[in-house]
Structures are given as C-alpha cells and as structure tokens.
Design a protein around this nucleic acid. Structure first.
Length: 287
DNA sequence: CTCCAGGTTCCGG
DNA sequence: CCGGAACATGGA
C-alpha cells in the first residue's frame, strides 16, 4: 500500500516500545492497529515494534532515536543497580524500558495535572488539552495534537481548562503557564542548573511540589538520578526495603533513595513503579 | 452511594 | 518539622 512505503525500519537493542510508552512516564500515546501514534513535541509519528525492529514514519529517524533515548546505555544502567529481591524482579519485568526525553514544558505541565488522578485519567486530560488547544498534526496512523505551549495556556481562562476535566488543577496549570510565559521561570535556564538548583526553581511554580518537580527533572530534564516518591513507590519501598514497617517518615525514604539506587536511580524508580502497578500489587486494599 | 486516584498547599500544634 | 484537611472529577 501507498502508506506502507512511508514507513522505515530501524534496528533496536534492549528496547521495549510498549513498556516505554505505557509505563506512566508519558500519557498521550494512543494505540493504532499494531502500533502507536503520538506527538514528539511538534512532530507526529507512527511507531511499531516487531522484536528487534522498529517501524516508524520516514524522516523521523533522528527525532525518534533521541525521543526514545535509544542511546541510553541500558546494560550499563542495569549493571549499576543494587541487587535486591524487589528491584531484581522489577528489572526483569521492565527489560528494555527507557526513560524518554520529553519536552520539558509538556512533561512538567502533564505532571501538574497528575495529582490525585489515576494514570488513565492523566492521559485523558492530556488528550483533551491537546485536542482543544494544541496544533493538529498528521502522520500515518491518523491525526494527533501537540501539547499546547505555555504561552497558549497562559492566554486561556481557568474555566477553559476545567472544561478539559482538570478540576482544581486548572488553577495550578494556568498559574504555571503564566509564570513561564512571563519569563518568571525560564525552563531553558533550568536545564543548565544543577539538580538542587533546578528543583528549587521548578518548585516556584504553583502545583509543583517535591514529587512533581522530581518527575519533571527525571522525565523532562534527563536527570536520571531523580527519584519521585508517590503513593505506589512509597508502598514498594516500605514493603521491600523497610520490612513493612509502619510510619516510615518521608525524610527516611528520601535519604534512603538518594544513595541506595545509584546514579540511575530514576530508572530504578520507574521500573519499581511500573512493576508494582502492572502486576496489581495493592497493599492495604482488597481485590 | 462510597471510595480513591504518580499531590500540593495551607493550617494548627 | 509534623499530621490533617481541603481541593474537583470520574471510574470502579
């Protein structure tokens, strides 16, 4: 078919496309047939994996390689991990999953809208914002939409955002977009800061606390040592590393995760998160 | 109908 | 510094 010719093939090693796109680090990729469609920033692309081959929209090879972090040294990362029952299991389950390079604003904005929402809901909010206020793009799998720029959102009203299902998060997203549009926070400068400085700067934005800032740093600024602690990771840590002890303080968890998981701690975190969430380990809940 | 979701912020002790 | 509560919305 005519469309088939617009796909090119790329060899990949130690890579899992489905896991990478659906592990909860990015929320707007949609399944289309045997593959996925979505926007990498302002570029639409179709992606499909068959074993060690990746099929993608022609002309997007370099962007895809970069976006999917195919250059990350997966074996090195894996070997840098400590060995313990919880992490060993998660690494085996998540083999080939990459921390991708998301544009910093859309990553940060998406996580601002993530608080007290399930992963599926975060995706729906992202897609509604994109369809309502983003740019329409086309690729082989159909149409997709880019994430609206901070300047675009800054010009909207809170109720416009609430119409996309944001609830109380609308105020935070709007406030953050305005601070960035006005230049009060410069994400380009954040990129040049050290981890602590970047964290401090991001937390000036409304709706950005420690957890969201860490997600931003890990997924949007390639700080692979950042270790976001959410309710899932907290359970995993307490069950797997603190013998189920109750009342482990935030500070103790922070201190433990800062050194224990090594310089690629963010990778370990995402593997633990995805494994726990996917295998349905739910402590303190029935079912 | 009730409960809860990749949290943040504000408040009182 | 710490624990609690409010905060909107939608799906189970």
């Amino acid at each position: 078919m005519e469309e088939e010719r617009a796909l090119v093939e790329m060899g990949v090693e130690d890579f899992d496309l489905a896991g990478t796109l659906s592990c909860g680090q990015v929320f707007h990729w949609e399944r289309r047939g045997a593959g996925w469609v979505g926007a990498m920033g302002d570029s639409a692309v179709y992606l499909e994996q068959k074993e060690a081959k990746l099929f993608l929209s022609a002309g997007e090879e370099d962007r895809v390689r970069n976006y999917l972090s195919l250059d990350h040294p997966w074996q090195t990362i894996r070997e840098s991990f400590p060995s313990d029952p919880a992490l060993d299991l998660a690494v085996e389950f998540c083999g080939g999953m990459r921390i991708i390079r998301q544009p910093s604003w859309e990553c940060l904005a998406t996580f601002i809208t993530s608080s007290l929402k399930r992963v599926e809901q975060i995706g729906k909010i992202s897609l509604r914002l994109r369809r309502s206020f983003g740019e329409r793009l086309e690729c082989i799998g159909g149409e997709v939409f880019s994430y609206p720029r901070a300047e675009k959102i800054a010009g909207l009203r809170e109720e416009d955002l609430r119409a996309c299902g944001l609830g109380f998060r609308a105020k935070s997203l709007l406030g953050s977009a305005r601070m960035i549009a006005e230049g009060q926070v410069d994400l380009v400068k954040v990129r040049a800061m050290d981890d602590e400085g970047a964290m401090e700067e991001l937390r000036r934005l409304p709706g950005v606390g420690e957890k969201v800032a860490n997600c931003g740093l890990l997924f949007g600024f390639e700080r692979l040592g950042a270790f976001p602690i959410d309710v899932w990771i907290e359970r995993v840590l307490i069950e797997g590393y603190f013998s189920g002890e109750s009342g482990v303080s935030r500070e103790r968890l922070r201190e433990f995760t800062r050194d224990y998981f090594g310089r690629f701690g963010g990778y370990a975190q995402q593997y633990l998160f995805h494994h726990a969430r996917t295998t349905g380990v739910r402590i303190g809940r029935q079912g």
